[in-house]
């Protein structure tokens, strides 16, 4: 199933002001994989993510998303294949009610009315927010907004989910629920995050980005044990892999 694949080949991106944000990044993410993208602030995570939804086009190198290589002509197909959940749900929820917001994508794809309704209900049901369907999005709590933002993407039934900091600004319980929810998705998942504990929970593979390059690419647990590597990339061992300061045990 090639339409679940993302492949980057020697990707470069230079911002108009000359900042070189990505300098030769290559990776291949295959069907059903769950990959965390981590790195210090300004490492190039967000820039990389903006390529995955076609908002930025690489200045050099190539990106294949599903069956298409990323060019201006294939943007529509790319948008259908990749569901992007933005960091700030307020950027993503712009329609007057939750229902209309979740329906926005399917409506633009031109589905018939009953199909749209079914998709919206299914998506809201999946994230457990169906009861909010008639509410205006700006009245929701941060956790609800996040869940609805995910539903807006699910309603287009994308093959690949890309998420920018899905666990930020959430209280511990809501964060836990979100992690459990994301764990149930069978999509290919790419999650950019600083929440390394979540990366350990959700992603078997991690890409560590450092100064616009890939510093490491491998199994999450292995990379997260490599203290030297983490130190180099301004990261820190996830809490659950550290020794408990009270009893001296590691939780996993």
């Amino acid at each position: 199933m090639s339409h679940h694949i993302i492949e980057a080949e020697d990707l470069h991106y230079k911002y108009p002001d000359g900042t070189s944000a990505i300098q030769g990044v290559s990776f291949r993410i295959t069907h059903g994989e769950s990959v965390a993208i981590v790195g210090e602030n300004g490492a190039g995570k967000s820039t990389l993510l903006l390529h995955l939804n076609g908002y930025l086009l690489p200045t050099e190198g190539a990106l294949r998303i599903g069956d298409y290589s990323l060019t201006k002509e294939t943007l529509n197909e790319v948008h259908r294949t990749v569901g992007m959940v933005f960091q700030d749900p307020d950027d993503q929820l712009f329609m007057p009610t939750v229902f209309e917001d979740v329906a926005f994508g399917p409506m633009n794809l031109g589905f018939p009315a009953d199909e749209i309704k079914k998709r919206v209900y299914d998506a809201l049901e999946t994230v457990g927010m169906l009861h909010l369907k008639d509410r205006p999005p700006f009245k929701l709590s941060a956790g609800e907004k996040r869940a609805v933002a995910i539903a807006t993407v699910l309603s287009m039934s994308p093959n690949i989910l890309v998420m920018d900091e899905p666990s930020s600004h959430l209280d511990p319980k809501t964060r836990r629920k979100l992690i459990a929810l994301l764990g149930t998705f069978k999509h290919t998942k790419i999650i950019a995050t600083h929440d390394l504990d979540m990366a350990v929970d959700l992603c078997e593979r991690t890409l560590i980005i450092h100064k616009g390059k890939i510093a490491a690419d491998g199994p999450t647990r292995e990379l997260m044990q490599d203290e030297e590597l983490l130190e180099q990339c301004s990261l820190e061992k996830p809490l659950k892999l550290q020794c408990c300061s009270l009893c001296g045990k590691v939780s996993v």
Partner: peptide
Amino acid sequence: QRIHSAMSCRGFDGHIPSM
């Protein structure tokens, strides 16, 4: 700019559809 990119991700083409 971010909203625009979120919209174009979901197929926005200058027209806000309504049911």
